[in-house]
Computed example of a mutant assay.
Amino acid sequence: MIDRPAPIRVLICEDQALVRAGYVTIFSAQPDLEVVGEAADGLAAVAATRSLQPNVVVMDIQMPDLDGIEATRRIAGPGTTGSPKVLVVTTFNVDGYVYEALRAGASGFLLKDAPPAELINGVRTIARGESLLAPAVTRTLIGQYAERVRSSAPTASPDLDRLESLAPRELEVLKLVATGLSNAEIAAHLVLSPETVKTYVSRILTKLDLRDRVQAVVLSYRAGLVTADN
């Protein structure tokens, strides 16, 4: 008898009952996914995360009582340990909200009109510890919004000081990560092995005290290491 890995535990956080029911139906039909709970507002999402200990939280941004950004911060933000991955599912026209959600600790985002197969793959992707950011969306969404934030700041970003801890090659790798390239693509670009690139990425995240590649992308745009025009 072959032992199967434990299913990915999923918590659905969405205030619209019909949308929430749709997610439950989609995910429950997959043998490797288990919907362990639902939440209709941000406070309930935080409480359910603590009691149910899901692997992945599917989070809407615009929810009552506590919005998805603050809920994400409480679930997966700075200072949290052993926290689940958060997948933000929202509409594209709230770019500032998505940007802030990624800063708060989300591991990726999808649009609400994404097909079921894309939602399922998104949950599996971030459950593996990978990020879910398409390069084109990264540039238009994170890049442009980060530039607006940076241009309105009265003083230089403290993120620039954080980048000074990186060696030249690490900065080069970080810049490629921020453009949305995978480890394999970065390895081909720099003529390195994928294992070497993986080591560089791990070292970068450690030095900058970042949780994952998504946070590295946000910091890179916010600090001006890359721009939406790169």
Rank of each mutant, 00 (worst) to 15 (best):
Y97R: 10
A29F: 13
T179E: 14
V94Y: 04
T140S: 07
E100F: 08
T138M: 02
I26M: 14
Q53P: 05
L43N: 13
L210S: 06
D32I: 12
I12Y: 11
V149Y: 00
A21N: 02
Y99M: 07
T72E: 08
A71D: 00
P54N: 13
L66Q: 05
A187Q: 08
I2E: 06
H189Q: 13
V35L: 09
E38V: 03
T206D: 15
N93Y: 06
P54K: 11
L141V: 14
R222D: 15
R150I: 06
R103S: 01
L132M: 06
R203C: 02
Y200L: 05
C13T: 15
I61H: 01
A6T: 02
E195S: 09
E164H: 06
A156P: 07
P7W: 13
S193T: 15
T179A: 11
Q62C: 02
A29N: 11
A21Q: 12
E185R: 13
A134P: 08
A39Y: 08
L163A: 04
I8N: 03
A127G: 06
D41I: 09
Y97D: 04
V19K: 02
F92W: 13
F109A: 04
Q62N: 11
G77L: 04
L160T: 08
S107Q: 10
A45M: 09
V226I: 14
L102C: 02
S152K: 11
A45V: 03
A44T: 12
V94Q: 10
G180T: 03
V94L: 10
A71E: 01
L166P: 02
D15V: 12
E185Y: 07
N183Y: 05
V57C: 08
V10D: 05
A167E: 14
E70Q: 15
I120L: 12
Q62P: 02
T80M: 13
E34M: 14
D212N: 15
G96L: 12
L160C: 01
S131V: 10
S157V: 05
S220L: 02
P54T: 14
L102S: 01
A106V: 12
R211I: 02
P158A: 03
R128M: 04
I12Q: 07
I26P: 00
V24K: 15
D32C: 09
S152F: 04
T196I: 07
A188M: 13
L205Y: 01
Q215I: 02
L190F: 00
S28N: 03
A184W: 01
E185V: 06
G37C: 08
A153E: 14
G129K: 10
G68H: 09
S28A: 15
L141H: 07
V88Y: 03
T80G: 09
L210Q: 09
